[in-house]
């Protein structure tokens, strides 16, 4: 089955035979391993991608069903060596330790700021409650997003 998606701004075609997930195709067939595979059941958020404007767990998207959609992964957020504001803020606040959750948080967080540029603390917490971090205790991540929320748009 041939599938075409707009991936990080470029049209990409791939072929799938079975029910494999978009996550699997991104990592194994499209050479984009930045999206992480940590639970495969939508319970950790490590595989979050922006698909047609929504933050979704790519492990729960059947790849063939993504045909025609617009997908943004962590690799597509920064361009020409210029980091996305969320990536900058995460670094500045020490919100990265092992970093395995980071791509999912960066994508989910950038989607949050698109829909709500000035979220409150509790809105940040709820919006990122689908992204498990095992290292930081979330404190530095919260400070990064509070910093972003305080910025003038």
């Amino acid at each position: 089955m041939n599938v075409t998606i707009t991936l990080n701004g470029e049209a990409r075609m791939f072929d799938v035979a079975g029910p494999e997930s978009l996550l699997s195709v991104l990592r194994n067939d499209l050479d984009l391993p930045g999206t992480k595979d940590a639970c495969e059941q939508g319970e950790c958020g490590s595989c979050t991608v922006n698909m047609d404007g929504e933050a979704l767990c790519s492990c729960l998207v059947m790849a063939v069903d993504a045909d025609g959609s617009i997908v943004l992964t962590v690799e597509g957020l920064s361009s020409e060596g210029e980091l996305h504001a969320v990536q900058d803020a995460m670094l500045k606040h020490g919100a990265v330790q092992c970093g395995f959750c980071t791509p999912g948080i960066v994508v989910a967080g950038s989607r949050l700021l698109e829909s709500n540029p000035h979220p409150t603390e509790i809105e940040i917490r709820e919006a990122l409650s689908g992204n498990i971090c095992r290292c930081t205790g979330y404190g530095a991540i919260l400070r990064a997003f509070e910093d972003l929320a305080a910025e003038e748009s």
Binding site: P19, E20, S21, E40, Q41, G42, L60, V61, M62, D65
Partner: peptide
């Protein structure tokens, strides 16, 4: 939404023949 079916695909290696 795939939130149940894909969990079965991923974890139980459930392989539907027709979707």
């Amino acid at each position: 939404g795939g939130t149940d079916l894909m969990v079965a695909v991923n974890l139980a290696h459930h392989r539907p023949e027709q979707i």
